[in-house]
């Protein structure tokens, strides 16, 4: 750069600086606009599952405790009969169960009525190895759940490895969940 050009730039700097600041801020806001505010980064990734113990659904023998997650890679799925998006992913969970890819544990979250969960599973099918009843969000808060459905990948040592917010679709499964599960099962 010649000295003259450099001096010209220096003279224009006071006018260019606000423009540069505007462009940077606009860039940040533009990215922010495209983000889903419900996708909150979880501080629980790579942390062990907090201890919890859920009662069995009505008419069932066993509930679901944090101890059940030790020993194999598993999915923990938060659902509720009131949750519309859970219906979208439900056939997919059934398919995972049928193919025996990974055991799924269910947290039946905030049912107003104790019959509602068992009835829903009887109607749509039960993809879960074990289901616990969580009317007061004990396990949900232990997992830092903000809405349903949410699904966690927990490794054989009981450490949370991934959090999926929103329904599991074929795309999410193929591109994100299944590769992580396979890697953990191999390791």
């Amino acid at each position: 750069m010649t000295a003259v050009a450099a001096r010209g730039l220096m003279r224009r700097l006071p006018y260019l600086l606000p423009l540069a600041l505007f462009v940077i801020l606009a860039g940040y806001f533009w990215i922010g606009l495209g983000k889903d505010p419900h996708e909150i980064p979880s501080p629980l990734i790579d942390k062990p599952v907090a201890a919890f113990s859920l009662a069995a659904l009505e008419g069932r023998e066993r509930g679901f405790t944090s101890q059940d997650l030790i020993g194999q890679v598993s999915l923990v799925n938060v659902f509720g009969s009131w949750c519309v998006a859970c219906r979208i992913e439900h056939p997919f969970l059934m398919q995972i169960r049928r193919e025996g890819l990974v055991p799924i544990y269910g947290i039946d979250w905030r049912e107003k009525d104790r019959q509602a969960g068992p009835l829903w599973l009887a109607q749509h099918g039960d993809p879960y190895a074990l289901v616990g009843d969580d009317p007061d969000s004990h396990a949900a808060i232990a997992f830092g759940v903000t809405g349903a459905p949410e699904t966690f990948i927990v490794d054989a040592k009981g450490i949370i490895r991934y959090k999926q917010v929103g329904p599991i679709t074929a795309e999410v499964w193929e591109q994100t969940l299944w590769p992580i599960i396979r890697r953990l099962q191999a390791g």
Binding site: I40, S42, P43, A50, F143, G144, T146
Partner: peptide, 8 residues
């Protein structure tokens, strides 16, 4: 609460 939900 922060340990479960983060600074958010």
């Amino acid at each position: 609460v922060v340990s479960r939900y983060g600074d958010f």
